[in-house]
Computed example of a mutant assay.
Amino acid sequence: MAKRQRRTAYLFLSPAIVYFGLFFFWPIVEEFRLSFTRGFRKLRPVGVQNYVDILHDPAVRHSFLITLVYAAVVLLLSTIVGLLLALILNQNFRGRTVARTMILTPYMTSIAIVGLMWRNILDPTTGVLNTVLTGLGLPGQHWLTTAPLATLIGITVWQEAGYIMLLFLAGLQGLDQQVYEAARIDGASVWRRFWTITLPLLAPTTLFVVLVGMIGTLQQFGLPYLVTGGGPGDATSLYVYQVYRETFSSGELGYASAMSFCFLVVILALSLLQIRAGKKKEAL
């Protein structure tokens, strides 16, 4: 009976196993193999030279550093904004369902639509935003050239805050209200209850938000591709966009594969560090 149950379980699991094997594990293995080659169509083996070149490539260092800055700022701002929105929309008031839907809409919208929409809005000559500023008697701004990375960060926070709000909202609704009632009886203020009850109890949700948000922002490609094109210069050439340029502009598939595999290792290391730090905090 036990063997039959195991066979049945593996039978139902087999589609998922085949899917992950073909579209997740096999591409990683193939990428690792390609990382020891150079070229695009005619690949030639170069050993570990790609990895050595990555360490000395200023373009790779630049894209990696601005990606870390972008991810850190986006994660911080979107977490703060999402938590504030969740705290507000967790209250009982008329129209909160409509408000939740409106705030979540940018996240549910296709990245292609978001990117093209903001590119048109921020256009220095025909953009809606500069038209409004001009109508108010204010000078128009070159949003995509004077502060492109800050603009990209703002768009990302606008899109991601709704999803983070939803996660925190789920965490808030799962908290025991009797703890808050006891704190109110003891005379604890709203600020005191937030710092001593809400934030500690939301630690698992916060860890999940930070982990998922970090992985997502580090892999951002759509917005720099659609909104800024990696420019001006290389100001918004995030790491994944730089991999894309190495593959399709420079024609260096092997070099791009080595960059991708290095980035995979970095993301895994950061994820493990965050999980370990989260477990230590929960133990305390």
Rank of each mutant, 00 (worst) to 15 (best):
A9W: 12
A9R: 01
F12C: 00
L13A: 12
F24C: 04
W26M: 02
V29I: 05
E31S: 12
F32H: 01
S35Y: 04
G39H: 02
K42A: 15
P45S: 13
Q49A: 10
N50S: 09
D53E: 13
D53F: 08
H56E: 01
P58E: 07
H62W: 03
H62D: 06
L65M: 08
A71I: 09
A71P: 10
I80E: 08
I88F: 06
I88Q: 01
R94T: 13
T101L: 11
L104F: 13
P106T: 02
R119D: 14
I121F: 09
I121W: 01
D123N: 15
P124Q: 11
T125I: 03
V128G: 01
T131R: 09
V132Y: 06
G135Q: 00
G137E: 06
P139I: 11
P139M: 07
P139S: 14
P139K: 07
Q141H: 11
W143Y: 13
A150C: 09
W158P: 00
L169E: 10
Q173C: 02
Q173Y: 00
I185N: 07
V190T: 05
W191D: 04
F194D: 03
L199M: 09
L207W: 04
F208S: 02
I215W: 06
G216F: 03
T228C: 13
G230S: 00
G231N: 06
T236E: 04
L238W: 02
Y241T: 11
R245F: 00
F248T: 05
E252F: 14
F261W: 10
L268P: 10
S271P: 07
L273K: 02
Q274M: 12
A277R: 03
A283C: 08
